[in-house]
């Protein structure tokens, strides 16, 4: 979707806080939200659905509220959509419906081990051979669509060169709609000047793009 989240190349956001203290969490609630998101995801959610739910936050809220606040709203909205929570529960903070069997508590070492076990792979075999080869010139799609997609606006309708092929990976536009199908994935190199004329002629921008975002460049 052409939402506020698609930020590459947008102007007017000002300087970066380069003096931010180097700590994982800047407030207790940020750590709690991080931990909630790592432990309460639902089996039929996909990473792309979760990202799409976050993109669907009102654009003013998306751009103005704190980062982990957007994770809270995403998690709550996705719970309500899936029927895990009711809107009434989310607003009141009180459980109304059926309770789950309490989960056993994890230790820190078990949490660290769980991080290791979350090395989720997204590549899958497909029958079709890759349509493009390394070094080939490609043209990106000029239009997006209203669902989730990973072709940013700034790289649409642009010429690039296939830099690497990564096999076939689960296609996010479909995964966000609940369908897990794989498609060939490539790293595509763009001359920065092909994206923005004012860029340094030596600079390049690399994006990881699925085959259906690309067509051969003449």
């Amino acid at each position: 979707m052409d939402g506020a989240h698609d930020l590459g190349g947008r102007e007017g956001f000002g300087p970066i806080d380069v003096n931010e203290p180097e700590v994982p969490f800047h407030a207790d609630w940020e750590g709690r939200m991080w931990a909630i998101s790592k432990t309460t995801g639902q089996p039929d959610w996909t990473i792309d659905w979760w990202r799409h739910v976050r993109e669907l936050i009102d654009p003013v809220d998306y751009l103005s509220r704190p980062y982990f606040d957007s994770w809270a709203q995403t998690q709550i909205a996705a719970f309500i959509d899936s029927g895990v929570l009711t809107m009434g529960e989310a607003i009141s903070g009180k459980a109304e419906g059926a309770l789950h069997e309490p989960q056993p508590a994890l230790t820190v070492d078990e949490a660290v081990a769980a991080v290791s076990s979350q090395a989720t792979r997204f590549d899958q075999p497909v029958d079709a051979p890759p349509a493009f080869s390394v070094g080939q010139s490609v043209l990106t799609a000029s239009a997006g669509h209203s669902g989730h997609t990973r072709l940013p606006q700034y790289a649409r309708g642009r010429r690039g060169v296939i830099h690497a092929h990564h096999g076939a990976h689960i296609m996010p536009d479909k995964s966000a709609a609940g369908r897990e199908e794989a498609e060939h994935l490539y790293s595509v190199a763009f001359a920065a000047q092909a994206l923005w004329p004012e860029a340094n002629r030596n600079d390049r921008v690399f994006l990881d793009l699925w085959e259906s975002y690309l067509e051969p460049a003449g």
């Binding site: 969490f25 931990a35 909630i36 432990t39 309460t40 895990v84 309490p102 989960q103 508590a105 078990e110």
Partner: peptide, 23 residues
């Protein structure tokens, strides 16, 4: 986030100790 945590704990979806461990 405090309200979300207490709701999820009340529903038995996670324990506060597990969240402590992840943090």
């Amino acid at each position: 986030v405090k309200a979300l945590e207490s709701l999820l704990v009340e529903k038995g979806m996670v324990t506060a100790e597990t969240l402590d461990a992840w943090v």
